[in-house]
Design a protein around this nucleic acid. Structure first.
Lengths: 180, 180
DNA sequence: TGCTAAACGGAAGGACCCTCCGTATAATAA
DNA sequence: TTATTATACGGAGGGTCCTTCCGTTTAGCA
């Protein structure tokens, strides 16, 4: 892959995320190409159709979330790491709302995508949760999958405000926390 | 409303339901107008935009479901009536899947639609459920809302087969049934 | 039967997805 | 450094779709 091709690929994914966030999942391919500073031809060479672009944006969202899990595990104490990761997870899940319909199409077209991404997230969740549990600062009768099922759908709900999600996450965190 | 206008309105709703079922929620307005035997101009006079047509189709689906509740309550014994209604409810909920994305848009645009329709369905459900419970043929520790929450999301799930839904409904019915 | 408000049909405007191909450029070798 | 070429770029344009507009038709009524 040539240097300019790689640069444009990355620009396009960044631009797509921004435009989706700003204009919703129905944003036009022209708008995304314009924001990335390339022509639509370039966009379509990298992403043969709209749904492939959605998939790429989603994959990098998951990459970032997994990376956050590794980062907080390395940098922070077990409990603060868990808090930071769950906050990142809420942001991730809420971010999906801007292009939720398109994401559903992507899942329909390629069912493995859903399975693979859920699995990666579950592993990231368990990295953080397991560490907190072994350190004795988190109750041990829930696991990563449970937390995904609890927090994920809550955030995907279109009628949930940012404030609400903060308060609900605080409540959940209080319920999870345990003095060592 | 002139006679031809009313006739075309009804034809359009019927045609839309058929075309959505056949081609999915993304079906074109031209295809729907053609199926109804009218021009697109006529379609747009009755339904100023796509989402209004989706809403109309959905409203008649709910009308039919409510009507079924009244019908079975009048015609059948309490338990057979409950079985018949729950089967109709499953068909209704599965029917939504063909234009689920569009329906979500309609709910976003007009939140009252969701609330109103849920309420009508809940009432219909409770008409049938309450009667069966008073007749002593249905356990009394669940109500109409519970059954909606139990059965509805199950049917909306895209990965559920018709066979599965039949078996699951049978299971639920067995759990609900009580000898008088 | 004649009148008119209401309804009809479909051409056309505008937006969008995607393709195609002539042009430009990064990478490489002389 | 320069020439070569595979690779990538840009954007006009084809095709489809939603929606608007307006000339034509018709139902309902006096």
């Amino acid at each position: 892959m040539r240097a300019d091709a790689r640069r444009n690929y990355e620009r396009l994914v960044v631009a797509a995320r921004e435009v989706f966030a700003q204009e919703g999942g129905g944003a036009s391919m022209e708008a995304i190409a314009r924001r990335a500073g390339v022509g639509v031809g370039t966009l379509y060479r990298h992403f043969p159709n709209r749904i492939d672009l959605v998939e790429a944006v989603y994959r990098t969202d998951v990459d970032n979330l997994v990376h956050t899990a590794e980062q907080v595990s390395a940098d922070l104490e077990p409990w603060p790491a868990a808090v930071a990761f769950l906050e990142a997870f809420v942001r991730y899940a809420q971010g999906k709302r801007t292009f939720l319909n398109e994401l559903r199409e992507a899942f329909d077209k390629n069912p493995d995508l859903r399975v693979d991404m859920m699995d990666r997230i579950r592993q990231a969740m368990e990295l953080v949760v397991g560490r907190a549990q072994r350190a004795g600062v988190m109750r041990t009768d829930v696991d990563g999958s449970d937390l995904m099922q609890l927090v994920g759908p809550m955030c995907t709900n279109a009628t949930l405000s940012v404030d609400q999600s903060k308060r609900l996450l605080d409540t959940i965190l209080d319920g999870l926390h345990k003095e060592p």
